[in-house]
Computed example of a mutant assay.
Amino acid sequence: MQHTLDLGGTFDVYDIRRWDDLSPGALGSYLGTDAVKDALHVPRHVPWEFHDNTGPVAQHLAVDNMQDCSDKYRAIMDRYRALLYTGNFDTACGYRSTEEILDDIMDKRGLRAEWRDAPRLIWTQAQGNPKGFVRSHGQLTQVSVPDSGHEVPAYQPEICREMLYNWLFDRPFHGYDPLKAGKPDS
């Protein structure tokens, strides 16, 4: 991965528009509060530290980081509704990568054709601007959120909140299918 970053000019994999790391300042302030430490059973005297790709957790995860876990996704999707969302400027876990994974999962479930044929809705705001791009089939919903990096809720908090409410409470994503004739249903 580092080689790819070096060749690309050491861009930020979490937001291709940036050339520096995202600031964990607000997250650190929140996680450093006594209330959060108490809820997570972390001693209050232990300082919060940000480690993305270093430290003991990263070292333990490195062994299985690239292992195929699609069977676990299939097991989850057989029992539960699933929502996978990505920011369009995220290269760490981007939309296209997610789409490839979902195509493979749906293929192994014998549902690839239905998944690929599921309409891709342009989810719109009242003035017609896109909030996101949504595809659903059965218990699976995939959303791409424009103008967002890896941490979608940090980049687009209002849209993310609405996306979660729509999905959690089984509400429609208002918009339109661009392949069908007619006007948006906003």
Rank of each mutant, 00 (worst) to 15 (best):
T91W: 06
L61Q: 08
V63R: 06
G87Q: 06
N65C: 01
G55Y: 10
T54K: 13
R44E: 00
G55R: 02
P47D: 08
R74E: 03
G55F: 03
C69W: 04
C69A: 15
D90Q: 07
A62S: 08
H45V: 14
R79K: 15
Q67E: 09
T91S: 13
F89D: 09
C69Y: 10
T86R: 14
W48V: 13
M66A: 13
D52S: 12
Y80H: 04
L84Y: 10
A92M: 05
D71K: 01
N88E: 15
S97Q: 13
K72V: 06
E100W: 07
N65H: 08
A92N: 12
Q59N: 11
N65R: 13
P47N: 02
R79I: 08
N65L: 13
Y95E: 13
C93F: 07
M66F: 12
A92G: 11
T54L: 15
R96N: 14
R74F: 04
Y73T: 00
E49M: 01
C93E: 14
A92F: 09
G87E: 03
C93G: 09
T91E: 06
P56V: 01
S97F: 06
R96K: 04
T98E: 12
F89Y: 04
G94L: 04
F50I: 02
T91V: 14
A62W: 03
Y85H: 06
R96I: 07
F89C: 11
H45A: 08
D90H: 06
